[in-house]
Amino acid sequence: MKITKEVVEYVAHLSRLEFSPDEADMYTAQLDRILAYMDTLNKLDTTGIEPTTHAIPLVDVMRADETAGGLAVEESVGNAPERIDSFFKVPPIIEAE
């Protein structure tokens, strides 16, 4: 086994997802098979090889630090499911004593 149901549930928590026990079983079985397939990479010796993060190498892009027009506040927050004026409204983050 490459992965257990406990690990799947823990990673789900890290990803802010929650699964029913059946879903967790399904994902565990599927990910186990996928990760086993990925083990084929271990056949290769990659000692000393630099990883590629972007296929087309570009240097850092710089620009002048100048102000420019942006979205109006109403446009920026207009898609929020809940808000108060120009603020996003969310459930409690810190529990009250």
Partner: peptide, 12 residues
Amino acid sequence: YRKAGQVRTLIR
């Protein structure tokens, strides 16, 4: 992830 990045270099 690191391993995949390295093999990506080989593929390139």
